Amino acid sequence: MAGAERVHGAADVERPVPLLNIANILTILRIVLVPVFLVVLFVDGGHATGWRIAATVVFAIAAVTDRIDGQLARKYGLVTDFGKLADPIADKALIGAALFGLSVLGDLSWWVTGIIAARELGITLLRFVVLRHGVIPASRGGKLKTLVQSFAIGMYLLPLPDSWSTASAIMMGAAVLLTVATGIDYLVQAIRPRARAHANPLSS
């Protein structure tokens, strides 16, 4: 009986999550698609209708992997520290590349790209600074921010008629507001573990 209990207990030991799993592979795929997207975006001067649609499709595929990898990681217990760190970095690389490309092509004001890029770069650096205290995973607010950014960018990428310009600007404005608001939230999250570590120096 005791032997059976020992075997049962050994079976209950939680196995480590493999680093190379489907969720992390999708995250890496999103990173790989970033340069592909930029190449397609700038083909033929960047304003040919067919190529703009193609660039939108590549961007959409990359953006969709963000939803899929997170769902798979949570559903099948594939959450890893690498995924927590790489997933938001992949999002920022894709969003940043799209904003930069649109600004270079003159389709989006540089101040919009500047605000979003500064926030994303700052939060990425912040994640590495607080890494010794723990990984800060992407929050629901951060995921909503990325979703709104993706929709806004998609509207700017597509060769839509001029009648859509106001709607596109409103969507991008919402993305900027969410970007700033979630940036402040991440800053608060980063300060808390550092404050606890300083308050309890022996715990580190």
Rank of each mutant, 00 (worst) to 15 (best):
I89T: 05
V112G: 03
F100Y: 11
K92R: 14
L158Y: 12
G50W: 08
L125C: 12
S204H: 05
A197G: 03
D44V: 10
S165F: 01
I25S: 15
A4E: 13
P18L: 03
R127Q: 08
I115M: 02
G183Y: 04
F42Q: 09
D66L: 02
I95R: 04
I191K: 12
A60G: 10
N200V: 13
R194H: 06
D12T: 13
A54H: 03
L108I: 03
L85Q: 10
V188P: 00
T124I: 08
R192Q: 14
V39E: 06
R30V: 04
N200S: 14
V180P: 02
P88K: 09
G101C: 08
N24D: 12
L202V: 10
P201N: 13
I28S: 06
R6N: 13
K84T: 09
L177R: 01
L38Y: 07
L72M: 12
T182A: 00
I191A: 11
L187G: 13
Y76R: 12
A175S: 12
F100I: 14
R67A: 15
L99S: 05
D185C: 07
L78K: 15
W51T: 00
A117N: 02
L29R: 10
T179G: 15
L33H: 05
S109H: 10
I116K: 03
I153W: 05
F42D: 04
S203T: 11
S165V: 05
I184D: 03
I95L: 14
D107M: 13
N24W: 06
L147I: 07
V58D: 04
G183R: 01
G9R: 13
S103M: 09
T65F: 11
F37P: 03
V130A: 06
I136D: 00
G122A: 11
V176A: 02
Q71F: 15
M171I: 03
T56R: 03
T65W: 06
I31T: 12
E14D: 10
L99C: 03
L19P: 00
A98N: 03
G142I: 04
L26E: 12
L144C: 06
G173F: 00
R74L: 13
K75Q: 15
A97W: 02
E14A: 15
D91Y: 08
G9V: 02
G173Y: 00
A199R: 15
F100N: 00
V148C: 01
K92Y: 01
G77H: 09
L72H: 11
A118L: 14
A10S: 12
Q189S: 14
N24G: 12
